[in-house]
């Protein structure tokens, strides 16, 4: 799957995550994750893993992702990443 344009999904509501994706001209996967410190310290790696897994599952190779988390659980992260990617292809 090729990311052809910028798109986003999710929101900045509590327990949601805003996923913004766009083409990555440098190639590869570039991920920027922003959340409360207390979440990043304890779940930052897990959130990143969920995002990367979903990207891989969808067969996307080159993408820029900015994720603004507001306490989302894994299922929300998966859904929002998929929605953003589907909107961007």
């Amino acid at each position: 799957m090729v990311i052809s344009k910028a798109a986003q999904a999710g929101s900045s509501e509590t327990s949601d995550i805003l996923i913004m994706v766009s083409p990555n001209p440098d190639g590869g996967i570039k991920l920027e994750l922003d959340s409360k410190k207390v979440i990043l310290k304890q779940f930052g790696k897990q959130i990143e893993k969920v995002i990367r897994e979903k990207i891989a599952e969808m067969g996307v190779k080159d993408i820029m992702v900015i994720a603004k988390d507001n306490g989302a659980l894994d299922y929300t992260i998966r859904a929002r990443v998929q929605a953003a990617i589907e909107r961007a292809i």
Binding site: A9, L73, Y75, A83
Partner: peptide, 15 residues
Amino acid sequence: KDSARLLVKEALRFF
């Protein structure tokens, strides 16, 4: 609609 549909799908698997 597309985003919510995916969210519900994931929720059904998760919760």
